[in-house]
Write a protein that binds this DNA or RNA. Structure first.
Length: 211
DNA sequence: GTACAGATTGAG
DNA sequence: TCAATCTGTACT
């Protein structure tokens, strides 16, 4: 299988394109000799300064959100509800506070007898207890950070160069009809901006955070 | 210094 | 349905 790390020019593009094209890409987290691999199945776009749901609304710069202004291809990670880390990748040029939140991963587990990456078959919903366990590893933005052991020490990380976390293209293309667009989760305070269809997930995938 | 909301989660 | 848990932010 052809595997190549996503380069700078993938990230320094319009955020909505990056959010859609991140679907079907692979997030690799190296811990010692081991690798945790997750296929990205759900994302959300945040487009400051105009987006009221963005931390960079009205061009706000704080100690927390300053990494959001970095050039595309950097990690912006922050703690939510005092408990959960939220992994974002910056997009666009330096100075533009736009990013993509990774909301769910399909864990790539070596044992192919348990399940395959082809989860479009509704019959596979009759999954085993083990399958349920795997499904619960990364089907939410906080859960995937817990699984991959990601925290504030990854803020500002350049994923085009990092040796502990990066993204790979494994020649899988998610076509437009397979992408479901919905409003973003948990930002109802953002008025009109809350209605924007800036959440994307892979149709019929069993590893998304919710429908 | 104090007050309070939040890009969530899991238990009940 | 709701509490856990704590940082960032606004305000006194």
């Amino acid at each position: 299988m052809r595997q190549k790390r996503l380069k700078r020019n993938f990230y320094t593009r319009p955020t909505l394109s990056v959010a859609k094209e991140l679907l079907g890409k692979y997030l690799i987290r190296k811990i010692g000799r081991k690798k945790l691999i997750g296929r990205i199945v759900e994302t959300e776009a945040y487009i400051g300064p105009q987006d009221k749901a963005s931390h960079a609304y009205k061009g706000k710069i704080t100690n927390r959100n300053k990494t959001e202004y970095l050039e595309g291809g950097h990690i912006y990670i922050y703690l939510c509800y005092g408990i959960h880390w939220q992994l974002n990748f910056t997009t666009e040029k330096e100075g533009k506070p736009e990013c993509v939140l990774i909301r769910a991963l399909e864990p790539l587990i070596a044992n192919k007898h348990e399940f395959t990456t082809n989860t479009t078959n509704k019959d596979s919903q009759k999954f085993s207890a083990k399958f349920a366990k795997i499904r619960n590893l990364a089907n939410g933005p906080g859960k995937l950070c817990r699984w991959m052991k990601l925290d504030k020490f990854f803020d500002e990380e350049d994923v085009t160069k990092s040796k502990r976390i990066w993204l790979e293209d494994r020649s899988e293309k998610i076509l437009l009809p397979q992408i479901v667009k919905t409003k973003r989760i948990g930002i109802d305070y953002a008025g009109e901006w809350a209605k924007k269809p800036w959440r994307f997930y892979i149709k019929n995938n069993l590893f998304i955070s919710r429908e």
